[in-house]
Simulated scan of single mutants.
Amino acid sequence: MPLALIISSHVAGSRVGASAQAAALVQFRIDSMIVPTVLYGRHPGWGIPGGAPVPIELIESMLDGIEANGLFSQTDMVITGYFATAAQVRAAARSIDAVRAAPREGATPQAPARKPTVVVDPTMGDAGKGLYVPAEVAEAIAAELIPRADVVACNAWELQHLTGTDAREPQAAVRAARLLNKPTLVSSVQRGNEIGVVYADRKEAWLAAHAKALRAPNGAGDLLTALYAASILEGQTISYGLARAVGGVAETVTAANIWNAPELPIVAMAARIKQTSPTVRIERLA
Rank of each mutant, 00 (worst) to 15 (best):
P134T: 03
P265H: 04
W157Q: 10
V189S: 11
D126V: 10
G248P: 04
L223M: 01
A209C: 12
V38H: 10
A52L: 11
W46K: 12
A98L: 12
M77I: 12
T276I: 09
M124F: 12
S14K: 12
L71H: 06
S188D: 08
E136T: 04
V198I: 03
A101S: 15
E251Q: 14
R244A: 01
Y82K: 07
I232C: 06
G65D: 11
R191C: 09
G235Q: 05
P44A: 02
G248H: 01
N155E: 06
A216P: 02
L242R: 08
S8T: 09
T279R: 15
D126E: 15
D201K: 01
I195H: 10
T276A: 12
A205C: 09
R284K: 15
R15P: 00
D126H: 14
H43M: 01
R168E: 11
E139S: 14
I48G: 11
G106W: 02
R148D: 01
Q27S: 11
R215I: 05
Q21T: 01
F83S: 08
V38K: 09
I141D: 13
N155A: 13
G125M: 13
E136F: 02
L179I: 15
A101Q: 14
V186H: 07
V174T: 08
G45Y: 02
P55F: 05
P36D: 07
Y199V: 09
H10W: 05
P122H: 03
M269G: 06
M77V: 07
D121W: 00
Q110P: 00
L25H: 06
R215D: 05
E263A: 05
A127F: 13
V246L: 02
L5P: 06
D31N: 14
G164Q: 13
V118W: 10
M269C: 14
K203C: 06
A256G: 07
E234T: 00
A271S: 15
I266G: 04
G235C: 01
P122E: 04
V249A: 11
L58D: 09
E60L: 03
Y40A: 05
D76C: 07
T184G: 13
R148T: 01
E144S: 14
E144D: 15
I66Y: 09
L159A: 04
A270Y: 08
Q27F: 02
S8L: 01
E136M: 04
V197C: 14
R104W: 07
A230T: 08
R178E: 01
I266M: 09
R42A: 12
T37C: 11
P53C: 01
R90S: 12
A22P: 03
R202F: 04
K212N: 03
A211M: 06
L242A: 00
P265V: 08
L285H: 11
V54P: 07
R100Y: 06
G13P: 07
I146L: 14
S19A: 15
T225V: 12
F83Y: 04
R90V: 14
R178W: 02
P122M: 00
F28A: 10
S239Q: 10
V174H: 05
M124R: 14
L207A: 05
I232N: 02
